[in-house]
Amino acid sequence: MMWMFRSSLGSRSDGELLALYAHGDSAAAKELSRRLLPALMGLGVRMLGDATEAEDVVQETMLRLWRMAPDWQDGQAKVSTWAYRVAMNLCTDRLRKRRHLSGGTLDDAPEPMDDAPGAEARLQDGARHDALQNALAALPERQRQAVVLRHLEGLSNPEIAVIMDIGVEAVESLSARGRRSLKQALEGRRAELGYEHG
């Protein structure tokens, strides 16, 4: 273990950093947080459509990571995969709670981001991003998870299968159906989003 202390933290794997943290190295916790937080925050925002809720999910995910650090067995799984899985489950819990509170009438979609008057005046890339976010929010939960993890987080299908606890074929199916639904949801906005040129 001591050899790890002589090397810079930046070259350590996530699992090694977690082991260092478990042995009392707070700098390792900082480096690991620096690596994981942007991805987890992105996942939370894309799944929930709300930055504040996403922050809560990220903090809870990292808290669970710190707690289980002494029990982590490096080599069995990737720390990032574990964190994605926890964060995804927390997002799902919040979406279900949100749906329950709304009486199931709002599906699990967050507030629309781009339907306010004057939205046309926004920068086009911002409008496209918001349109995509709204279309994602309207997808069924599992399709949204698969699309976000595959196309926005850039994870591989086998990794997504671990996170979602399903087979790789199921991931491919969910992702494909999600993409089809997105296309259908966005086709009416092609001109508005600058994708039709005559």
Binding site: G24, S33, P38, V45, M62, H129, A131, L132
Partner: peptide
């Protein structure tokens, strides 16, 4: 659209990082 969303920077608030590290210290 996917590519643009991937490249869009994700804002990690400083206070979130501070809270996460405070949790780490407390658990340790």
């Amino acid at each position: 659209m996917f590519a643009a969303a991937r490249q869009r920077p994700v804002d990690v608030p400083n206070d979130l990082m501070a809270r996460v590290l405070a949790d780490a210290d407390r658990i340790a």
